[in-house]
């Protein structure tokens, strides 16, 4: 998306968190020694009594957040996505989700755009890990404005949430004052040949890909799907029914994330070809974010290629047992 303003999701999260803290004295914030990176430092400096730095102890942080929620608080716990979802997974399951406690896990540095820190710090499994948990809501905003709206919305909605933001600045796509609706996707561009369903940074790349496809004579729709769980099944079924071919795009493993979630719905309700763009069964490596996205096949060009395949599959002559 050339020429479009870019803005940081984590900066926005930090600023909105401080704004929410002003309005709601029950909001408390925890971090695990990464407050300057996750931007919870803004809240910490404004409300030191309601900020708890738990040190390098993510498991303790999540269970402590659960205790604060049991005590009537609205805790936002932040660290890098890999540690929040991976290191502390069992605490998220046992301490938070099992009792449906009102803990908001706001993880920054999701995906491969973490870049230079390398594979140990690149969360490419977090959406899958969080999506399997009962009671959990999983949100992956596509830009800073959506991050702001989602942060406000989850603060006023009961229940455990995993909100994934990023280290990098993403192009602005969503309007500044648009409300966030948990569990709702949105059509950003209409198309009749194929539908691209994306979240996070891949939404902007999907729009780029759709533009390119149009130049090639393929009409591609684009859906921004910020809530991975609960998933907007109606919209997915509608897209499958009207286009007959789906491409998913996520900055995450193609196993278990948005692509899998969409495929589950499509297979059960409106079987059409689904091609998944994302990390294909590998760990990442160090490098510049844009380089890595291209290298590992998470670019607009990868989406274009997947769209071609999906459309070709759709148009194959009917075979025995195939619906279309």
């Amino acid at each position: 998306m050339q020429g479009v303003e870019k803005k940081s999701l984590r900066d926005t999260y930090g600023a909105i968190l401080a704004e929410i803290g002003e309005k709601n004295p029950n909001v408390v914030v925890l971090d695990a020694d990464l407050s300057s990176s996750t931007r919870t430092s803004i809240f910490a400096s404004k409300f030191p009594d309601r900020f708890f730095n738990m040190g390098v102890a993510e498991q303790d942080m999540i269970s402590t957040a659960a205790g604060l929620a049991a005590g009537g608080k609205i805790p936002f716990a932040s660290t890098f996505a890999i540690f929040a979802s991976g290191r502390a997974w069992e605490q998220v399951r046992q301490s938070v989700c099992l009792s449906n406690l009102n803990v908001k896990i706001a993880a920054s540095h999701g995906g491969i755009t973490v870049g230079e820190d390398g594979p140990s710090h690149q969360a490419l499994e977090d959406i899958a890990l969080m999506r399997v948990l009962p009671n959990m809501t999983v949100i992956v905003p596509c830009d800073a404005n959506e991050t702001a709206a989602a942060t406000r919305k989850i603060a006023s909605t009961y229940g455990p949430v995993y909100l994934r933001t990023s280290r990098e600045k993403f192009p602005l796509i969503i309007g500044k004052d648009e409300e966030f609706h948990i569990g709702k996707g949105r059509i950003l561009r209409h198309g009749s040949d194929v539908a691209i369903i994306a979240c996070g940074i891949m939404t902007s790349k999907a729009l780029d890909a759709a533009q390119k496809l149009e130049e090639e004579g393929i009409s591609a729709g684009v859906v921004n799907m910020p809530t991975i769980k609960p998933l907007d099944k109606d919209l997915i079924i509608q897209m499958a029914a009207t286009t007959g071919a789906i491409v998913t795009a996520e900055e995450h493993s193609i196993t278990g994330g948005l692509g899998s979630a969409v495929a589950e719905v499509v297979c059960e309700s409106e079987p059409v070809p689904v091609m998944r763009v994302g990390m294909k069964g590998k760990f990442g490596s160090s490098g510049k974010p844009d380089e890595l996205m291209d290298y590992y096949g998470m670019s607009a060009a990868s989406i274009v290629e997947a769209a071609h395949k999906a459309v070709a599959l759709k148009n194959e002559p009917a075979r025995n047992g195939r619906a279309r």
């Binding site: 402590t64 659960a66 605490q91």
Partner: peptide, 25 residues
């Protein structure tokens, strides 16, 4: 029963969280 437990090691963290909430209030 105030909080769910059973996976060992997590209860003290939760108890701390409750104690922190009580102190704030």
């Amino acid at each position: 029963v105030e909080v769910s437990t059973g996976s060992l090691g997590q209860g003290l963290s939760m108890a701390n969280g409750i104690a922190m909430a009580l102190r704030l209030d």
